[in-house]
Design a protein around this nucleic acid. Structure first.
Length: 794
DNA sequence: CAGTGAGCGAGCTTCCGCTTGACTT
C-alpha cells in the first residue's frame, strides 16, 4: 500500500502526475466537487445563519467510498485540488467527508502540470484556507437562494419550467437588449466615393476623405470631377507593427473556433476535452494566458530551429481580467514537437488552431510598412486617399492570424504601385455608392461568452452549459435568418459621363446567431422591473468584491448573505403576491374584413394572434393562429398577423383527396392523404400551386420508397427503415436499434421480433407520458436508458 | 408538429461551478 495519497480534480491530471511522483505516491481523482447543497428547499437554514446542508451527490458515492478507504491506509493525504475558491472548497469537503486527520493531511497547489511545479508544491504544503472556503460557501449559497427563490416567481407569474439565476438571466438580458437595439436602429445612409486609377497597368483604389449625405451632393461632386486632373500631392510612409495574440483561454478558444470553424461553444469544449484526455493539450477550462517556463522554453526552441532565431520572442502574458482566478495554464499543446496529431478531422482542426495560437504567441511581431498617398483633384477641396501595406517581416503571421467578429466589410491590405509626388493619374472611374449604417451585430454563442467574461459573469466551466440552458429554457434560439432586400443608389463617372443606377442588396442576413423568444423578452422585462439588482450587469462584480473580502478574512460569509437576503426575500414575497401575470398582450389593429380587434399574446402553447374578443357565444368565438418561428409579439405587424389566418389553405384535389398547405413546428408543409410533405424554402406556402404541390407529393413518394429497406409478411407494422444513423426497426410509432453488424438482406422476422421484445416498450400512450416526465428529470432519464440498454445486451 | 388559447388544482419544474461519461431514430 502506498504511503501517500494525492487527490486531484481531474483523472487525466491524476495520470500525468502519478508519472512524476514515483511509486510512493498514489494519485487519484475526485472528479470535481464531491458534495453539494441538498436538492430540496431545506438545503439552507435561512433562519439559522444560513447553515448549508451538504450531501454527497449520488454519482460521487462510489468514488468517495474508494477515497475513504485509500485515505485510511495512507500515511499522508495530499489535497491537490485547484488553487482557486472552488478548489479550496473541494479540499475542505474532502477533508470533512473523508474525515481526514489534520496531522496527516497536506494542502498543496500548482498552476501547471510540469514535474518541477509538482515537486515544488510537495515541498511547500500548507493548511486549508478556511476564509477562501467561506467565500465559496457564500457564492454557492447566494446562487442557490437567488435561483430557487426567483424561479418559482416565474412559474407563478409567467409559466412553469422556467428558471432564473445570477448568470443566465443576465445572459438573456444581453440578447434581449441587443435585439431591441437592432429593432429600434435608425438606418441612415451616405455616399461613399471610391476612385479607381490606372497606374502603369495596375489598378489602384482611393477613397474620398468625406461621405456625402445626399445623392445631390454626391452628384455635384462627381460633376466637378468631370475632366479634372488627379495629382499625387503627398506620399507618406509609416512603419507599424502587429503583435501576436496571447495563447488561448476557454473564452478566446470558443471565439476563434466559432469565427474560424463555425463551431458552437459546446462542440468546441467536447473536442477540446478529447484532446486533453489524450494528453495532447493542457487543461481546456482556464481563464489564464500564462504559459509555464517549460512551455516557453520549448516553444522558443522549436521556433528557433524551424523558423530561425529572429522569429523567436519569448513572452509572458498577463491577464487583464479582474475576475480571473488563474488556477491553470493557458490552453497549449503539451508538446510543441507534436505539430500534427492522430484523431478525427475536428480534433485535428482544433488542435491545429490551439497549436498555432500558442506558438505564434511566442513569435516576433510582424513589421509592416504603411503607405498613404494623398491625391488632389483640380478645383475640389476634398482629397482622395489611397493606402497600401507592405509586409516587411512576417514574424508570427507566418503561422497564425486572429479573426475578428466584425469582418463583413473587409478592406484587405493591398500594395500600392510605385508612385511619385506630382504624378498625374489616369482615372478609370469614380463611383459614389450609397452605404448604410449598421446596428451592433447580434450575438453568436461565442461572442456572448466574450461579453459575459468581460462582465466577470460565469466561469470557464460554465460558459458552454449556460449558453445551452438559456436555449433549453426557450429564452433564446440559435438561428439563421434570411436577409431583407433594400435599394441603394450608385453614381458612376466614367469616360467623362455620369450615370445613375438603382441597385439592390441583401442586408441583415444572419448565420447561427442568438435571437430572443417572446418568453425570453417577457421574463427579462419582468425580472428587470421587479429585481433590478439581480439584472444589473454589475451585480456579479459587486458580490465578487464581497467574496474577496470574505476570502481575506475581512467579512463573515453569513453576515454578507444575511445583508443581501433580507431585502431580496422581501421583494420576492412582495412580487409573488402583488405582481400581475405576464402574457405580453398587445393590440395590433383592426381586422379590415370583420372590423374586430386583433391581438397578439403568449399562451400555454406559445405566442399567438387572436381576432375578436373572448365570448361565451359559440358563433362569436375569436379565431386563433400561432405565430411563426422568428416572429415576436413585440414586433409583429397587423399585416403579418393577418397572413397567419390564411392558412391552412386547400391547394387542390389530387387522387380524390384534398391537398392542404399549412405551417407547422418544422416549417411549411403540405398534407395529402394524412401524409406530411415539407415545402422547401424556395416555394411560398401562401402561393404554391396545384401542379407544384403534386410534384412535391410524388417526389416524397419516391424518397419514401428508398427509405423502406425491408418489410415482413408476418407483421405489416414492422419495417426496416434507412435513417440518419443507418438502418433501424420501426414498429408503429416506436423505433428500435439494430446491432451495428446487422446485414439487412439477411435479417429475418424472428430476429427483429426478438429485439422488439427485448426492449418491450409499454403501450404507446404510456410511452408518450413517460417521455414527458423523463425529459423533465434528466438524471432519471439516463438511468432508465442505461437499464434498457443493458437488457438489450443480455 | 398536425391546430389548441376558460379556469381550477394536483404535482412537477429551478441555481452555479467543479468534474466526466453515455449516447443519440
Amino acid at each position: 500500500m502506498s504511503k501517500n495519497l494525492v487527490i486531484v480534480e481531474s483523472p487525466a491530471k491524476a495520470k500525468t502526475i502519478e508519472k512524476f511522483l514515483g511509486k510512493d505516491f498514489t494519485v487519484k481523482s475526485c472528479f470535481g466537487h464531491i458534495r453539494d447543497l441538498a436538492k430540496g428547499d431545506d438545503a439552507i437554514d435561512v433562519k439559522g445563519n444560513f447553515k448549508p446542508n451538504y450531501e454527497v451527490s449520488d454519482d460521487k458515492k462510489a468514488i468517495v467510498a474508494e477515497l475513504k478507504k485509500l485515505s485510511k491506509d495512507a500515511d499522508l493525504v495530499w489535497l491537490a485540488s485547484d488553487e482557486d475558491r472552488e478548489g479550496e472548497a473541494i479540499s475542505w469537503h474532502l477533508s470533512e467527508v473523508l474525515n481526514l486527520d489534520e496531522k496527516k493531511t497536506r494542502r498543496i497547489v500548482f498552476h501547471e502540470i510540469t514535474k518541477p511545479a509538482i515537486l515544488k508544491a510537495i515541498d511547500n504544503p500548507r493548511g486549508i484556507d478556511k476564509n477562501l472556503v467561506d467565500a465559496q460557501q457564500a457564492r454557492r449559497v447566494l446562487d442557490r437562494l437567488v435561483g430557487f427563490e426567483l424561479s418559482p416567481v416565474l412559474w407563478k407569474k409567467v409559466k412553469g419550467n422556467l428558471s432564473a439565476g445570477r448568470v443566465q438571466s443576465v445572459a438573456v438580458r444581453l440578447i434581449v437588449d441587443r435585439e431591441r437595439e437592432i429593432n429600434n436602429f435608425n438606418y441612415s445612409s451616405a455616399f461613399r466615393v471610391i476612385a479607381r486609377f490606372n497606374v502603369g497597368g495596375k489598378q489602384m483604389e482611393a477613397e474620398l476623405g468625406k461621405r456625402f449625405e445626399t445623392e445631390a451632393e454626391a452628384k455635384a461632386f462627381l460633376e466637378k470631377c468631370v475632366g479634372a486632373n488627379f495629382t499625387i500631392k503627398n506620399l507618406e510612409v509609416k512603419p507599424s507593427e502587429k503583435s501576436p495574440a496571447p495563447p488561448f483561454t476557454t473564452s478566446t478558444l470558443q471565439q476563434e473556433a466559432s469565427r474560424k470553424m463555425g463551431y458552437g461553444v459546446s462542440i468546441t469544449m467536447s473536442i477540446a476535452q478529447k484532446l486533453y484526455e489524450n494528453g495532447l493539450i493542457t487543461y481546456m477550462r482556464t481563464d489564464s494566458v500564462n504559459l509555464s517556463e517549460l512551455a516557453i522554453a520549448s516553444a522558443q526552441n522549436y521556433i528557433s530551429s524551424n523558423f530561425g532565431e529572429k522569429y523567436s520572442r519569448p513572452m509572458r502574458y498577463t491577464t487583464k481580467n479582474d475576475s480571473a482566478q488563474e488556477a491553470h495554464e493557458a490552453i497549449r499543446p503539451t508538446y510543441f514537437e507534436n505539430v500534427e496529431i492522430e484523431g478525427t478531422p475536428q480534433e485535428k482542426r482544433l488542435y491545429d488552431l490551439i497549436y498555432k495560437r500558442a506558438i505564434a504567441s511566442q513569435m516576433a511581431k510582424a513589421q509592416i510598412e504603411k503607405t498613404i498617398a494623398t491625391i488632389a483633384i483640380d478645383g475640389v477641396t476634398e482629397q482622395l486617399v489611397a493606402t497600401g501595406e507592405v509586409l516587411k517581416f512576417d514574424g508570427f503571421l507566418k503561422v497564425y492570424l486572429e479573426s475578428t467578429d466584425d469582418d463583413q466589410e473587409d478592406e484587405g491590405s493591398k500594395m500600392l504601385p510605385p508612385l511619385a509626388v506630382g504624378e498625374q493619374l489616369v482615372l478609370n472611374q469614380i463611383q459614389a455608392t450609397e452605404r448604410f449604417t449598421r446596428p451592433a451585430p447580434r450575438y453568436t454563442e461565442a461572442s456572448l461568452v466574450k461579453r459575459l467574461e468581460e462582465l466577470g459573469i460565469g466561469r470557464p466551466s460554465t460558459y458552454a452549459p449556460t449558453i445551452s440552458t438559456i436555449q433549453k429554457r426557450g429564452y433564446v434560439v440559435k438561428e439563421d435568418r434570411e436577409g431583407k432586400e433594400r435599394n441603394f443608389v450608385q453614381l458612376t463617372l466614367e469616360k467623362q459621363v455620369i450615370s445613375r443606377e438603382d441597385r439592390t442588396e441583401k442586408f441583415a442576413s444572419e448565420k447561427s446567431k442568438l435571437f430572443p423568444s417572446d418568453i425570453g423578452m417577457i421574463v427579462t422585462d419582468f425580472l428587470s422591473k421587479h429585481f433590478e439588482q439581480i439584472m444589473d450587469f454589475n451585480f456579479t462584480a459587486s458580490v465578487e468584491e464581497e467574496f474577496d473580502k470574505i476570502a481575506r478574512g475581512q467579512l463573515v460569509w453569513n453576515k454578507m448573505i444575511e445583508k443581501f437576503y433580507g431585502p431580496f426575500h422581501a421583494t420576492v414575497t412582495n412580487t409573488s403576491e402583488n405582481a400581475e401575470r405576464q402574457n405580453a398582450e398587445r393590440t395590433i389593429g383592426i381586422d379590415p374584413e370583420t372590423g374586430k380587434t386583433v391581438y397578439v399574446k403568449v399562451g400555454r402553447y406559445g405566442p399567438f394572434a387572436q381576432i375578436g374578443d373572448n365570448s361565451d357565444d359559440e358563433a362569436l368565438k375569436p379565431k386563433y393562429a400561432s405565430l411563426r418561428a422568428g416572429q415576436l409579439t413585440e414586433t409583429i405587424t397587423l399585416e403579418e398577423a393577418l397572413d397567419l389566418f390564411k392558412l391552412p389553405r386547400v391547394v387542390g384535389n389530387f387522387e380524390g383527396k384534398d391537398i392542404k398547405a399549412a405551417i407547422g413546428r418544422f416549417g411549411p408543409y403540405l398534407m395529402h392523404d394524412s401524409k406530411f410533405i415539407s415545402i422547401p424554402k424556395t416555394d411560398d406556402v401562401f402561393a404554391i400551386e396545384f401542379d407544384r404541390a403534386v410534384e412535391l407529393i410524388e417526389g416524397k413518394r419516391i424518397s419514401d420508397a428508398n427509405k423502406l429497406l425491408k418489410t415482413f409478411e408476418e407483421d405489416a407494422e414492422v419495417k426496416i427503415l434507412n435513417g440518419r444513423w443507418g438502418p433501424y426497426i420501426a414498429k408503429g410509432r416506436d423505433n428500435y436499434r439494430l446491432p451495428k453488424t446487422t446485414k439487412v438482406e439477411e435479417l429475418t422476422y424472428e430476429v427483429v421480433a426478438k429485439i422488439i421484445e427485448a426492449e418491450a416498450k409499454p403501450a404507446s400512450k404510456k410511452t408518450a407520458a413517460k417521455k414527458v416526465v423523463a425529459a423533465k428529470t434528466p438524471a432519471k432519464k439516463t438511468a432508465a436508458k442505461k437499464t434498457a440498454a443493458k437488457k438489450v445486451k443480455k
